[in-house]
């Protein structure tokens, strides 16, 4: 099911400000691509441009091509809402809907899209998504409790389950562990390992060890200078980037002498 995403010559603007310039990158299917780089280098903007979430911010736009499965995400007749159903996203801070129970949170994507389900169907979707997100065993006895009653790490996995229930091809993760404790972080990382069997995963992280642990490919973003747009410096297989990067800036960043 998972699809490859090809990005070529992508520029991202907020109003007249150019945030990211000239990115060309391929994110392979059934693998994890990590985006690393200093704060403000545009890696989150880049991630959000992959499912057109950046359009939620007024004035944001892109130039260039993002191609998945032979079709451009930014083609004229493409509906951004439908793009987001194919390319799910998990955020930095867990954001379960506070008015909904655990089960309703998982079903939110389906329900809010107006899909009618009978009880059995709904139960099956809930169980499948929660099992996929490694959360089923912890919550199966309290599916009717509010989603906000879970711990931070559980909430984040609930958000992943919520994204999976929509049956996406790709999962984008924007620093999914930065608000979590080490134990919850390990749980999410284990989950990423399992999920990459079935999905294309792109993850933004500030944690170098995490990038090294979970990703197959790493892409390093950097700023050309203060007030200048962010660039993709280099990308490649994770072992290579972390051992023998081509660009000295990459090595400086990874070894902690920079950023």
């Amino acid at each position: 099911m998972a699809k490859t995403i090809d990005v070529s010559d992508l520029d991202i603007y907020y109003g007249s400000f150019k945030a990211v310039e000239d990115v060309t990158l391929t994110m392979a299917s059934r693998s994890v691509t990590a985006l690393i780089g200093p704060s403000g280098c545009g890696k989150s903007s880049f991630l959000r441009s992959l499912n057109r979430m950046h359009e939620v911010i007024p004035g944001a736009r892109v130039e260039g091509k993002v191609i998945m499965d032979g079709r451009g995400l930014y083609d004229v007749d493409v509906d951004p809402v439908l793009v987001r159903r194919d390319i799910g996203m998990v955020f930095q801070r867990p954001n379960p809907f506070p008015t909904m129970s655990i089960a309703d949170n998982v079903l939110a994507g389906k329900r809010l899209n107006g899909k009618r389900m009978n009880r059995a169907e709904a139960a099956e979707i809930v169980e499948r998504a929660l099992v996929s997100a490694n959360l089923w065993n912890e919550v199966k006895d309290r599916l009717r409790k509010p989603g906000a009653s879970l711990s931070g790490g559980q909430q984040q996995r609930l958000c992943i389950a919520r994204a999976l229930a929509v049956e996406p091809q790709v999962l984008l993760m924007d620093e999914p562990c930065s608000a979590l404790d080490p134990i919850s972080t390990t749980a999410i990382e284990d989950l990423i390992h399992t999920l990459k069997e079935r999905y294309t995963i792109v993850i933004v992280t500030h944690n170098m060890q995490q990038a090294a642990r979970v990703s197959d490919t790493t892409a390093f973003f950097n700023l050309a200078g203060a007030g200048r747009p962010g660039h993709l410096i280099e990308s490649g297989s994770t072992p290579k980037i972390f051992s023998t990067p081509d660009n000295p800036a990459t090595e400086a960043y990874i070894s902690g002498r920079f950023g």
């Binding site: 979430m53 801070r93 954001n95 809907f97 008015t99 809010l112 994204a163 929509v166």
Partner: peptide
Amino acid sequence: HELREGAYALGVRKWRTVVQVVLRT
């Protein structure tokens, strides 16, 4: 704002997000 983004990321239409997530909350 995170709740709105959470809904948008699930491919939910804006009006449904407003009615069923924002107004509901």
